[in-house]
């Protein structure tokens, strides 16, 4: 089986400050990779480099494209990369405001991504939008409301619908449940797990919440000071951590 994503030697410096250093991994179809670490550990920098939002200083991000097979997205042309990010890739931001158009209706937010890949028939676009709003448990009578009138949890679900409507194969998620209260968080995790399994999606989830990765991720990478200090099966890393920092991280979780 060809990996969906092959990452090798990704480094990113901000001037002389380290963002992340020499990160390599493979992601296979249907796999969910969690990246944990405290703020400033370089996990968001890494995610942005992988998703093409930032250009890494060194390294390759090889994605198995539908048309041409494995291709380095760092060196591909800007239009090609943009096309990827509209079709095969999705990016769920921590703050839904970064991933939504707040002044456009919920249905419009979902439909826009379809139009960006060439859909033109209004009836079909609206039907697809309503179908996806239903999947993320947003009722049909809210289709024409703006996201600014939605609660935080609903905005996050809308962002997921907008991202998944074009049938991506890889989702990047930056703290998808950050800032949501626990009951909404559980519902969102349940939804994400179901979608990942049903649609066979691969995902890279950045978070600082260990409970979230335990539920969502098959594999885990732990980052500190811009480097990956430990990686492996999620339950193995959490139950038998080897690195001093991971042990500290795991033992610092409060028991409920």
């Amino acid at each position: 089986m060809t990996p969906l994503l092959q990452v090798s030697g990704i480094s990113k410096y901000y001037d002389t400050r380290l963002g992340c250093r020499d990160v390599s991994f493979d992601l296979y179809p249907g796999e969910v990779l969690g990246i944990v670490g405290e703020s400033g550990s370089g996990k968001s920098t890494l995610l942005n480099c992988l998703a093409g939002h930032q250009e890494p200083d060194t390294g390759k991000v090889v994605f198995d494209t539908r048309a041409d097979g494995p291709k380095d997205t760092v060196t591909m042309s800007e239009p090609e990369r943009r096309m990827l990010s509209r079709t095969d890739w999705a990016f769920v931001h921590q703050n839904p405001r970064d991933g939504l158009r707040m002044g456009v209706s919920a249905g419009g937010n979902v439909g826009e991504r379809l139009m960006a890949v060439g859909a033109r028939h209004y009836g079909n676009i609206r039907a697809a939008a309503i179908d996806w709003l239903d999947k993320v448990e947003i009722s049909q009578d809210r289709t024409d409301d703006r996201p600014s009138q939605f609660s935080g949890g609903m905005q996050q679900r809308l962002q997921i619908a907008r991202n998944l409507v074009t049938g991506p194969r890889l989702i990047f998620m930056d703290e998808p449940t950050g800032g949501l209260d626990v009951s909404v968080q559980a519902r969102l995790l349940d939804l994400l797990r179901g979608l990942v399994r049903e649609l066979g999606l691969s995902a890279i989830v950045v978070t600082h919440d260990l409970a979230v990765v335990r539920l969502l991720a098959d594999r885990l990478m732990v980052m500190k000071d811009g480097q990956v200090i430990e990686k492996g099966l999620t339950d193995q890393v959490l139950d038998d951590p080897q690195h001093a920092y991971t042990q500290l991280l795991v033992s610092s979780v409060l028991q409920v």
């Binding site: 492996g232 099966l233 193995q236 139950d239 038998d240």
Partner: peptide
């Protein structure tokens, strides 16, 4: 048992 399951290294 956990080592056999791959849960412990």
């Amino acid at each position: 048992m956990r080592m056999i399951y791959g849960n412990y290294l």
